[in-house]
């Protein structure tokens, strides 16, 4: 978020790599929904302005139906989620809340799985609430696709998990309580805490 080396506060380090709960994920999803809505509105405003510029005399304000608006929203949402999950593992909402979508082995999910996951979330967003009662904090989409969402405040924990950067001393003895039943090993180096999922 800021320039310079990102720092995970002491209190948050034990949680890095643990599965994120429903509150964090719902907030992240809400941020994504707002972001997509704003993007859609901006695009629509640009489209209307362009039409007005091209044909100022015969211009009529378009009257889009609710179905068209909903469809456009869902399409953009699916594109947004799938592209970001497949490329960076985190959407803007995930980035704000410090969580990342990973596969069963802690690796980044592929484009197909990201697309299917995005479609499932767009079609049935209530499946997210299952992580509130799931022992492993998995949503229904996570259960179906074998994915999980972990706390990862650092932007790229996956790439850094096996290497020690900048000569930082690395040790894996930190079996934090936050890892708990998820079997998430913590690799703490310097000011950051990187994670490795052992499932």
């Amino acid at each position: 978020m800021t320039d310079g080396a990102p720092v995970v506060p002491q209190g948050a380090r034990p949680y890095q790599g643990a599965n994120a709960g429903v509150a964090t994920r719902v907030v992240a999803a809400a941020i994504d929904g707002v972001a997509v809505g704003l993007g859609l509105l901006t695009g629509y405003g640009g489209y209307v302005g362009l039409r007005l510029l091209l044909n100022p005399r015969g211009y009529q304000l378009p009257d889009p139906s609710a179905a068209a608006g909903t469809t456009a929203f869902l399409v953009v949402l699916v594109l947004y989620l799938s592209v970001l999950w497949a490329t960076t593992g985190r959407t803007y909402g995930d980035h704000v809340m410090g969580i990342t979508v990973v596969g069963g082995h802690g690796s980044r999910i592929g484009p197909v799985r990201a697309l299917v996951r995005a479609v499932l979330y767009a079609v049935f967003p209530l499946g997210l609430l299952w992580c509130a009662i799931s022992a492993k904090r998995h949503s229904l989409q996570d259960v179906v696709l074998r994915t999980q969402v972990v706390y990862a405040w650092l932007p790229h924990p996956i790439e850094n998990q096996t290497t020690s950067k900048g000569g930082a001393e690395e040790h894996r003895a930190d079996e934090s309580p936050a890892a708990g039943e998820h079997g998430v090993r913590h690799v703490r180096a310097g000011s950051g805490a990187w994670t490795m999922n052992t499932h």
Partner: peptide, 14 residues
């Protein structure tokens, strides 16, 4: 602050 609040809320809900 928002992230820490999220973690605390997650634990409380769990």
């Amino acid at each position: 602050g928002v992230r820490m609040t999220g973690i605390t809320a997650d634990d409380a809900i769990s």
